[in-house]
Amino acid sequence: ERLAYIADHLGFSWTELARELDFTEEQIHQIRIENPNSLQDQSHALLKYWLERDGKHATDTNLVECLTKINRMDIVHLME
Protein backbone atom coordinates (compact mmCIF):
# COMPACT_ATOMS: atom_id res chain seq x y z
CA GLU A 1 0.00 0.00 0.00
CA ARG A 2 1.18 3.51 -0.83
CA LEU A 3 0.76 4.84 2.69
CA ALA A 4 2.93 2.07 4.09
CA TYR A 5 5.59 3.00 1.55
CA ILE A 6 5.36 6.67 2.58
CA ALA A 7 5.50 5.77 6.27
CA ASP A 8 8.64 3.71 5.65
CA HIS A 9 10.39 6.78 4.22
CA LEU A 10 9.21 9.48 6.65
CA GLY A 11 11.60 8.82 9.52
CA PHE A 12 11.90 11.79 11.88
CA SER A 13 9.74 13.90 9.55
CA TRP A 14 6.57 12.21 10.75
CA THR A 15 6.07 14.80 13.51
CA GLU A 16 6.39 17.67 11.04
CA LEU A 17 3.90 15.96 8.77
CA ALA A 18 1.56 15.43 11.73
CA ARG A 19 1.60 19.17 12.47
CA GLU A 20 0.87 19.99 8.82
CA LEU A 21 -2.05 17.55 8.95
CA ASP A 22 -3.38 19.49 11.98
CA PHE A 23 -2.63 16.95 14.68
CA THR A 24 -2.13 18.47 18.13
CA GLU A 25 1.06 18.11 20.17
CA GLU A 26 -0.96 15.94 22.54
CA GLN A 27 -1.99 13.61 19.70
CA ILE A 28 1.62 13.44 18.48
CA HIS A 29 2.77 12.60 22.00
CA GLN A 30 0.10 9.87 22.22
CA ILE A 31 1.34 8.28 18.98
CA ARG A 32 4.88 8.29 20.43
CA ILE A 33 3.67 6.59 23.64
CA GLU A 34 1.67 3.97 21.73
CA ASN A 35 4.62 3.18 19.42
CA PRO A 36 7.70 3.72 21.58
CA ASN A 37 10.29 1.69 19.71
CA SER A 38 10.02 2.58 16.07
CA LEU A 39 9.79 5.73 13.94
CA GLN A 40 8.30 3.53 11.25
CA ASP A 41 5.49 2.40 13.58
CA GLN A 42 4.89 6.03 14.59
CA SER A 43 4.65 7.04 10.92
CA HIS A 44 2.26 4.18 10.16
CA ALA A 45 0.09 5.11 13.16
CA LEU A 46 -0.03 8.77 12.09
CA LEU A 47 -1.20 7.92 8.57
CA LYS A 48 -3.74 5.42 9.91
CA TYR A 49 -5.21 8.04 12.29
CA TRP A 50 -5.24 10.61 9.48
CA LEU A 51 -7.24 8.22 7.24
CA GLU A 52 -9.67 7.44 10.07
CA ARG A 53 -10.10 11.10 10.96
CA ASP A 54 -10.39 12.60 7.47
CA GLY A 55 -12.01 9.71 5.61
CA LYS A 56 -12.63 10.61 1.98
CA HIS A 57 -10.90 13.97 2.55
CA ALA A 58 -7.62 12.16 3.22
CA THR A 59 -6.41 12.50 -0.36
CA ASP A 60 -3.06 12.10 -2.11
CA THR A 61 -3.31 15.76 -3.09
CA ASN A 62 -3.61 16.78 0.55
CA LEU A 63 -0.68 14.56 1.50
CA VAL A 64 1.52 15.87 -1.34
CA GLU A 65 0.78 19.46 -0.24
CA CYS A 66 1.84 18.71 3.33
CA LEU A 67 4.94 16.75 2.27
CA THR A 68 5.93 19.67 0.03
CA LYS A 69 5.56 22.11 2.94
CA ILE A 70 7.96 20.04 5.06
CA ASN A 71 10.45 19.77 2.17
CA ARG A 72 10.07 16.03 1.60
CA MET A 73 10.02 16.24 -2.19
CA ASP A 74 11.89 12.92 -2.21
CA ILE A 75 8.71 11.23 -0.97
CA VAL A 76 6.51 13.27 -3.32
CA HIS A 77 8.62 12.02 -6.24
CA LEU A 78 8.30 8.44 -5.00
CA MET A 79 4.50 8.86 -5.07
CA GLU A 80 4.40 9.91 -8.72
Rank of each mutant, 00 (worst) to 15 (best):
H57V: 12
M73A: 15
L51D: 09
D60F: 15
E25A: 12
E34W: 11
T59E: 08
T61Q: 07
R72Q: 05
R2V: 13
E65H: 09
Q30K: 06
L47D: 00
E65D: 15
L39H: 05
K56N: 08
I31E: 01
G11K: 09
A7E: 03
T59P: 12
E16T: 14
Y49F: 13
L46E: 00
S13E: 07
S38E: 07
T61R: 06
A18Y: 00
N62I: 05
F23T: 04
I31W: 02
E65F: 04
S43P: 02
M73E: 15
D41F: 05
Q42T: 01
I70Q: 02
N62S: 13
H9F: 03
V64H: 15
L3K: 04
Q42G: 02
L67F: 01
D22K: 09
G11A: 09
W50V: 11
L51N: 06
H44Y: 04
N62P: 08
L39I: 15
L3R: 08
H44A: 14
L46P: 00
A7L: 12
R72W: 01
T59K: 11
F12S: 14
H57T: 15
D54R: 08
E26S: 07
I70G: 01
N37D: 12
E52P: 02
F23M: 11
A7K: 10
H57I: 04
V64D: 04
T24D: 14
D22S: 13
L51T: 13
D22W: 04
H29I: 08
S13K: 04
Y49I: 12
Q27H: 15
E16R: 13
N62H: 13
F12I: 13
N71H: 05
D54S: 07
Q40W: 08
E25H: 08
Q30M: 13
T68W: 03
Q27R: 07
L67W: 00
I6V: 06
S43M: 00
L17D: 00
L51G: 05
G11I: 03
I33F: 11
L47F: 14
M73R: 13
L10M: 04
E25V: 09
C66L: 06
H29V: 14
I33W: 08
L46S: 02
I28N: 03
K56V: 09
E34K: 10
W14V: 03
V64F: 08
D74R: 01
A45L: 12
C66G: 10
I33A: 11
H29Y: 03
Y5A: 14
E52N: 12
L67C: 05
R72E: 00
Q40M: 15
C66K: 13
T15D: 04
H57P: 13
D8F: 03
A58G: 11
Y5S: 06
D74M: 00
N37H: 11
P36Q: 06
T15E: 04
L47A: 04
G11M: 04
T15L: 14
T59D: 06
T61Y: 07
E25K: 15
A58S: 04
E34N: 10
L51C: 03
Q30H: 10
N35Q: 14
Q30S: 08
W14I: 00
A58I: 03
N71Y: 02
E20Q: 05
I28H: 01
I28Q: 04
K56Y: 06
I6K: 01
T24L: 05
F12P: 05
A18M: 01
N71D: 09
L17E: 00
L46Y: 02
S13L: 03
E52V: 13
D22Q: 13
F12K: 05
E20C: 05
L3E: 03
L67Y: 01
Q40P: 10
H29T: 12
Q27M: 12
N37V: 13
T15I: 09
F23V: 05
K48N: 14
S43T: 02
H9D: 13
N71E: 05
E25L: 09
I75K: 00
A18E: 00
R32N: 04
H57F: 06
H44T: 03
R53W: 12
R2A: 01
F12C: 10
I33K: 14
S43W: 01
A45H: 04
V64M: 13
I6A: 00
Q27W: 11
Q40F: 02
G55C: 06
A7G: 15
E52R: 10
E26H: 14
E52A: 14
E65C: 05
F12Y: 04
L47K: 02
E25S: 10
N71V: 03
Q42V: 04
G11C: 06
S38I: 02
I75F: 02
P36W: 08
A58R: 08
D41E: 08
P36H: 04
H29S: 10
H44N: 14
L21K: 02
R19Y: 02
L10H: 00
T24R: 11
L51S: 06
N71C: 09
I70N: 01
W50P: 01
R53P: 04
I31T: 05
G11S: 13
A7W: 09
E52M: 08
L51M: 12
E65A: 12
Q30V: 08
E16D: 14
R32E: 14
E16I: 14
G55W: 06
R72A: 04
R53E: 05
E26R: 08
E26L: 09
I33G: 10
D22C: 05
L3P: 04
R2T: 03
S38W: 02
R32H: 14
I75W: 00
N62K: 02
R19W: 12
D60I: 06
K69N: 13
D54H: 13
D41W: 04
L3V: 12
H44D: 00
L51E: 06
D54G: 12
W50K: 14
E34V: 11
R53Q: 09
T15F: 03
V76P: 04
D22A: 09
L67Q: 00
K69E: 09
L46G: 01
I75N: 02
C66F: 10
I31N: 03
A4D: 14
N37L: 08
W50S: 08
E16K: 03
N35D: 03
I33L: 07
